[in-house]
């Protein structure tokens, strides 16, 4: 992350609209991050685990 000033952009205080846009952007990023994880293939260990649950209980 850079802290350098961008001379092309004037400084101004954040407006309500800014805050709302930022909030939306942050929520969108969070959702994208989360969905990206949820879209990963299910690791084999879980398939194996569920398969084993099918086996008759040992007494």
């Amino acid at each position: 992350m850079t802290t350098q000033r961008d001379p092309k952009r004037p400084q101004r205080p954040a407006t309500k609209k800014d805050i709302s846009l930022v909030s939306k952007a942050v929520s969108g990023k969070l959702k994208a991050y989360y969905d990206d994880i949820a879209a990963q293939d299910i690791p084999d260990r879980f398939k194996d685990l569920l398969d084993r649950l099918d086996e008759p209980k040992q007494s």
Partner: peptide, 30 residues
């Protein structure tokens, strides 16, 4: 949500035009 907004930095939202005061304050805080 507010904290996350701070942590991620406003600079990544081009529409709002990054407020340099906020940016440097956040960078300092980080």
């Amino acid at each position: 949500r507010n904290k996350l907004t701070e942590l991620l930095g406003l600079s990544q939202v081009p529409e709002i035009g990054p407020d340099n005061n906020v940016k440097s304050a956040l960078a300092a805080e980080a």
